[in-house]
């Protein structure tokens, strides 16, 4: 399987050589990507929904290469139901309160995790998410933000 971070950095030879010096770290980062985006048991969050939310997080941080990767991944599933989600301006306030609550949570935890409160979790329960759903959402958001930070740091190294 293609290493997503190497791909996002344009398969730069120096960056690949540097990353390969931390072999376990690199392999476990890629394995975490697969576990977060395409777990064997996706529960209530389909692969398409996961890819769409990941693309939205990347768009928030203007991580263009990763956003493109996740948009392509979303497209590869052939589902159109989540096509609006990657646009950070999209909200589902009137159409789908559950999706709206999920988007609010993803936006807060991505952009200003320090603002997250117990209340936010209560709002997720209120629209029907269960314990596992709430942890799934946090785990996905946390992983993708990790990936965004790693790519941002590596880009700094690559370009200077």
């Amino acid at each position: 399987m293609v290493d997503v971070i190497d791909k996002a950095l344009g398969e730069d030879a120096d960056i690949i050589a540097l990353r390969n010096r931390r072999e376990t770290l690199k392999a476990k980062t890629q394995a975490s990507y697969e576990a977060a985006l395409t777990p064997k048991d996706p529960g209530n969050f389909s692969y398409a929904m996961r890819a769409a939310l990941a693309a939205r997080m990347c768009a928030h941080w203007k991580a263009g290469e990763l956003e493109a990767h996740y948009r392509d991944l979303l497209k590869s599933y052939g589902e159109t139901a989540f096509d609006a989600i990657p646009d950070p301006a999209f909200r589902a306030r009137d159409s789908d309160p559950k999706v709206d609550a999920i988007l609010n949570r993803v936006d807060t935890v991505t952009l200003s995790p320090k603002e997250a409160t117990r209340d936010d979790v209560e709002k997720l329960y209120a629209v029907g998410l269960d314990d596992r759903d709430i942890v799934t959402l946090a785990s996905l958001t946390a992983f993708v933000n990790y990936q965004i930070l790693v790519v941002a740091g590596l880009k700094m190294l690559r370009d200077h």
Binding site: L25, P113, A116, I134, S139, Y146, Q147, G153, L157
Partner: peptide, 20 residues
């Protein structure tokens, strides 16, 4: 590279520990 990962893995950990 190590510093980037130490920071990024806490971008991950903080988003679990502080939000859950």
């Amino acid at each position: 590279l190590d510093l980037i990962h130490a920071i990024a893995i806490f971008g991950w950990a903080n988003r679990l520990m502080h939000t859950l």
